[in-house]
C-alpha cells in the first residue's frame, strides 16, 4: 500500500498521516512514513520528538551543503535519512526547509 495525504495548511494532514502510519504499524505491517512537507513536522506527530525530528531535517539540509552524500537508492535513503519510531514505523525526511532569498 502506498498512500499520500494532501490538503490545506492546518487541516490535519500531518496528524492524520501519523495516526494512519502507527495504526498500520500496530497491525504488524512494515511502515515507512515519508515527510515530504517543506515544513517537516511528521516526527512530532509520530511521537519521535522535536530533537530527533530536527536531526533528520538537518541531515537533509546537509545534502545541499555538500556535507552529506545523496542516497543512491531507496534502501540507503531509508537507512541513512530515517529513524525508528514507535510501533515499528520508520520515518524519513525527504524535503528541506529552503533558504530564504534565492537569487
Amino acid at each position: 500500500m502506498k498512500v499520500a495525504v494532501v490538503g490545506k495548511g492546518g487541516s490535519g494532514k500531518t496528524t492524520t498521516s501519523a495516526i494512519v502510519a502507527r495504526t498500520l504499524g500496530r497491525r504488524g505491517l512494515g511502515v515507512v512514513a515519508l515527510d515530504c512537507d517543506t515544513n517537516p513536522n511528521l516526527g512530532i506527530s509520530l511521537g519521535i520528538g522535536e530533537v530527533e525530528t530536527d536531526r533528520l531535517v538537518s541531515m537533509r539540509e546537509n545534502l545541499d551543503e555538500g556535507a552529506e552524500q545523496h542516497a543512491p537508492g531507496w534502501n540507503d535513503l531509508i537507512s541513512r535519512f530515517g529513524t525508528d519510531g514507535p510501533d515499528g514505523v520508520r520515518l524519513a525526511v525527504v524535503t528541506r526547509i529552503e533558504n530564504p532569498e534565492p537569487g
Binding site: G9, N39, E98, P100, E101
Partner: peptide, 9 residues
C-alpha cells in the same frame, strides 16, 4: 504557510 523560501522572496 510554512517556512518556504518563497514566503520571504
Amino acid at each position: 504557510g510554512g517556512p518556504r523560501q518563497a514566503a520571504f522572496g
